[in-house]
Design a protein around this nucleic acid. Sequence first.
DNA 1: AAGCGACACAACCGCATCTCT
DNA 2: GAGAGATGCGGTTGTGTCGCT
Length: 298
Amino acid sequence: MGRPPCCDKVGIKKGPWTPEEDIILVSYIQEHGPGNWRSVPTNTGLSRCSKSCRLRWTNYLRPGIKRGNFTPHEEGMIIHLQALLGNKWAAIASYLPQRTDNDIKNYWNTHLKKKLKKFQAGLMDSNNNFGPPSSSSETTTTLPNPSSSSSSSSSSLFASNISFHDRTNLSHSHSASSSSSSSSTTYASSTENISRLLQGWMMRSSSSSSTPSSLLKPEISKDKQILHHQNDSSNKKNILQEFDSSMLSSFDDDNDDDKQRSDINSNGSDPPLLFLEKWLFEESNVGHEDMMELSPMF
DNA sequence: AAGCGACACAACCGCATCTCT
DNA sequence: GAGAGATGCGGTTGTGTCGCT
């Protein structure tokens, strides 16, 4: 309400961070811990606004962040959770260890959204050949779209036509098709220097237990907790609870794939799922077995 | 080699929400 | 309870890189 933006001050630097700035910020947080961002610029002498410092830390410098390619497992989770939660990237990120909301958001916007559009286009074409989509929606559970914001058009676009199982399986195609073509993301050598700096810090802090645990492992975000309590849709609630428990078991033992797959398969493969798998097969040139193999969680 | 467009990602902006007094 | 400040979140933009012509 009339509050001036924190970055309106004259002399505040914008744009990419330099390695020197990164080191200053990391050193300061190493000493004082994250938080109290307002005081960070003044105490460090950085010509950055507090918000910029916080973003730099949470999205880039924070220890435990995993960068580079998303695994098929992660892709599947993102697609699944986006369908469940909408564009609640922070909530989605809470399920993905080592991934930031910004990273997930970018990945969704640049990769997954296109994939979904492509899939829907394929679905449209196939509907012309195999019949109207309504025939499938009657036999499958169409998830409610929790996102009420108009900006979540992509999620509603996807949620409107695809079943729960369809969505969980959709991830396979991209992973299969992209895994061969994608290369590991390269970063500037300056960033690698920061990474080394952080690695040294983590080694030290792990022995002294000075690193806050919240920085290193995901927590169930407030958003998700609110969703659990506020949403009246028992359907979605159940799905989220199922997802929570499957996530817990997934974190406990990532190799327990067969059981999870069999659990999912025991629910039965509905016609749209078979259709989706067919599409995925054509799209990614991988077989059904391969797709299942690529889905450690589902 | 230069120009151009597409793509990926870091960072910014504005609003929402939380916290403290 | 109200107001101000701090922090979090999601959408968007800016910019560097890569591939194609």
